[in-house]
Design a protein around this nucleic acid. Structure first.
Lengths: 199, 199
DNA sequence: CCAAGGATTGAATGGTGGTTCACTTCTTGC
DNA sequence: GCAAGAAGTGAACCACCATTCAATCCTTGG
């Protein structure tokens, strides 16, 4: 045994893996999932195409992880913003502002994460992304119901429907590249009504 | 000039074209878009694959029309149901009941029309489908606002968000094959709150 | 410096399924 | 019946791109 993997090599491997994921994200942000051939990702990461397959068994596995990473980042940002508010109404305002604000900052990436046609295996990852948002929202709704701020309702159904509303309301602006100035406040009003926030 | 197309031929061509669209719809209802290779559609329609290309320049064009046809049928059914009600609240109840009821009747088809990964060109058709629902709903919302039944709001944004909520709330049940018994009434309550229907 | 084995390479491979096209069959007006 | 031209056929074609792999380069302990 003249060779045994050492820390330095492990670090280089891990860095390489990270660069591949980062490259995939960058291409998604620029040209969407459609622009993400394995060859293009590899080139941007500065490795050969074959190397990608030393880190991920298939392209779908790579992009499942890419989606997971990007989605987690979004959900975390939204969760952090909501956590700083006290009432369910304010928490949902923060959710909308953060979600929509970030989406409009990187519209191509947001479109890819939300709605672009992708491989079915990657699409499955999208479901867990939406589920994470729904769980986050459901928590705040349940707390609001418990405290009496919101009327009785199924927090899970409300949250699911709100995620759909939020996503759908953003797809148009994302395609257009901009949102009208009233869109976000109007959306917040809509969501407050849907929650039953007393005016 | 020994040949000029006649009525009888035109009718046969049109019938053939119709059979191709019908076959595509049937396969979608059974196996989703994923099962719809051109060869499979042609076989079911009783024609050769080449014949499909005498009616549609590309597969995407064929399925754009298939989606258009199926979507129009759905939108019409929902519009008809809503038109029989008098108030905006009752109209939206009818929208939800009809939309969800029909979707649960043909879950595979509904999933394909709503959410299954498809060719980008076909996906574009899906947008106009959702737009048609949004326009339908926006009309009822605008009337409700005008009559004073609903509070002031942007009917278009409300309608877009509601379409998203409706679609998102149905995707789970469609994947599962059934909806819990409370889902539809709960969804109606959610939507009434979102519209600002007074309790 | 060496041998062992892992990491990297990128051109070649292969599978899929949409699309084409040379050929056959049918329709029409004379 | 016949010539012109359209419709129909389906096997062959081909583009695309994920995936592989034989050859090469690096890293390591001795």
């Amino acid at each position: 045994m003249a060779y045994r993997s050492t820390e330095r090599v492990k670090a280089r491997l891990s860095a390489s893996r990270g660069r591949i994921i980062a490259a995939a994200l960058e291409i998604m942000a620029g040209h969407g999932y459609a622009g993400c051939s394995v060859a293009a990702v590899a080139e941007r990461a500065g490795v050969a195409t074959g190397t990608v397959y030393r880190h991920f068994p298939t392209k779908a596995d790579l992009f499942a992880e890419v989606f997971r990473t990007a989605s987690q980042r979004e959900v975390d940002a939204v969760a952090r913003a909501a956590a700083q508010r006290a009432t369910a109404a304010a928490q949902m305002s923060a959710v909308v502002e953060t979600f929509a604000g970030r989406a409009l900052q990187s519209p191509r990436l947001a479109y890819a994460l939300l709605a672009e046609p992708v491989d079915p295996a990657v699409d499955a990852e999208r479901l867990t992304f939406r589920r994470a948002y729904a769980d986050l929202i459901a928590g705040h709704v349940a707390a609001g119901v418990a405290s009496g701020e919101l009327p009785a309702q199924d927090p899970d159904l409300t949250a699911t429907a709100l995620v759909g509303a939020l996503a759908e309301a953003m797809v148009g602006p994302l395609a257009a590249g901009v949102a009208g100035p009233g869109t976000i406040p109007d959306l917040i009003r809509f969501i407050h009504r849907a929650l039953g926030v007393s005016p």
